[in-house]
Nucleic acid binder design. Structure first.
Length: 421
DNA sequence: TCTGGGGTCCTAGGACCC
DNA sequence: TCTGGGGTCCTAGGACCC
């Protein structure tokens, strides 16, 4: 049995924990650069506001006070996520953290009533300890647990916990489930299914194996097996290391000057190197990309790929290569809107294969330097120490006009119960 | 004027091998 | 006129997820 615990309207809920008055009106949370909507409270969803809608469409209604709008505050969301996960861990350390707001449990096969009872207890505890409402779906496979969870969220009569075990109930539910609402079926595959005259999950599981595989590939076929109750996506407890790391941002304004772009890719390389060291990896390649706005013609987007003779996580080296790569793809007179750095092909810090012909990078002094910088920044906050190449107060930085305080991670931004001033 | 960021897996086609 | 069969590895692009 799998249980999927999923936070309701997670980012919006995080904001409401610290500012309950936000729950009175629809609330939307914006992406980086205040570009588009990435989270909505229940009331905002009821207005029909879609994930990914551009923010400017709602500016008037925000000005009129009908809708509340916040920039994203990922520092807060990440911390709240940790609290939720820790609470869940107190039930069972065997847990798969699937995303910032979701986790799977593996459960023993017990009666539906007992499973439901346990679910309600977990839900109650998370709410009490963190203030975050969650929904729980329990079923024989992950894909079915996802569907159970969705229905728990949608229909209040389940009180936030739905157990989907009996063949009869599963089938009844699948008759009401559209292909797009199945985990792993997106708009493209759903369209393909429609060409095969499949309009519900139930019609999908009743089709021939060969036909399904031909239509939507091996991944789609696995999803169908899961819907039939055959588990194909195993429980994955240990969080594995990332295989690639991307750091990229849209700029707050259009950028044409190569010096600004250099600062930005230096900053992204630096952030990437930090993440790399965090998971004790070194990168064997780095790519850099820059792009103009995809909504304005002509669209210009270029990237380059640089192999590293010796895998490294040493920031100055990665900055140097990022800037070198940038210069090879930069073309003047374009209004760039976005840049990024991708690191990949990782090797473990401790099992490095050294190039016979090139002198190694990782002398102990460099390693020590990076460790020290990381320690200072962990203790005194992001960018307490940084590289000059990243620019001090850069003008290309993303917009973030309406962010809530870092209530839980910064002494200067603690929640004020009453303003004594 | 204004439209995010960070990932994973699969597949088809090209290059190559015997 | 007639030009094999079977395989691996790599990569770019597509599709998906949150």
């Amino acid at each position: 049995m799998f249980a999927l615990i999923d936070c309701n309207n997670f980012y919006a809920s995080c904001e409401e924990v610290f500012n309950p008055s936000l729950s009175k009106k629809p609330l939307i949370i914006l992406s980086n650069n205040d570009g588009c909507i990435i989270a909505r409270s229940k009331k905002a969803k009821e207005l029909g506001i879609q994930m990914g809608d551009p923010a400017y469409l709602f500016k008037e209604r925000v000005d009129r006070g009908e809708i509340q709008m916040l920039s994203s505050n990922f520092t807060l969301y990440a911390d709240m996520s940790q609290r939720v996960m820790q609470t869940l861990e107190s039930y069972s350390p065997q847990m798969e953290i699937y995303s910032i707001d979701e986790a799977f449990f593996e459960l023993e096969d017990r009666s539906a009533d007992r499973l439901c009872e346990d679910g309600l207890k977990i839900r109650q505890k998370v709410k009490q300890w963190t203030g975050i409402p969650v929904s729980i779906g329990i079923a024989p496979t992950k894909t079915l647990a996802k569907i159970a969870n969705e229905t728990a969220k949608k229909h209040p009569e389940f009180s936030g916990v739905r157990v989907l075990i009996s063949q009869f109930e599963i089938r009844k539910q699948l008759e009401k489930t559209e292909p797009e609402d199945i985990w792993g079926i997106g708009s493209a595959l759903a369209q393909r299914l429609r060409t095969g005259r499949i309009y519900t999950a139930c019609e999908l599981i009743d089709r021939e194996d060969r036909f399904i595989q031909h239509l939507i590939g091996i991944s789609g076929y696995r999803t169908v097996l899961e819907l039939r109750g055959i588990s194909c996506f195993p429980f994955e407890e240990e969080s594995e290391k990332k295989q690639s790391i991307v750091c990229s941002r849209s700029f707050g304004r259009k950028v044409s000057d190569i010096r600004d772009l250099e600062e930005s890719v230096a900053a992204f390389a630096s952030r990437g190197a930090e993440k790399l060291r965090n998971q004790k990896s070194r990168a064997s390649f780095l790519s850099v990309f820059i792009a103009t706005s995809p909504f304005v013609q002509p669209y210009e987007s270029r990237s380059c790929h640089i192999e590293l003779p010796n895998p490294t996580s040493f920031t100055p080296e990665l900055i140097r290569l990022a800037k070198k790569g940038l210069r090879s793809i930069y073309r003047p007179h374009f209004a760039y809107k976005k840049a990024g750095v991708l690191l990949g092909d990782f090797v473990d810090e401790n099992s490095e294969q050294i190039d016979y012909l090139t002198p190694g990078n990782e002398n102990p002094k460099k390693t020590k330097l990076m460790q020290t910088i990381d320690r200072i920044n962990r203790r005194y906050g992001k960018n307490a120490v940084q590289f000059a190449a990243e620019g001090l107060d850069p003008s290309w930085r993303s917009n973030r006009a309406n962010a809530s305080p870092k209530f839980t991670t910064s002494w200067n931004e603690l929640l004020k119960i009453q303003d004594l001033a």
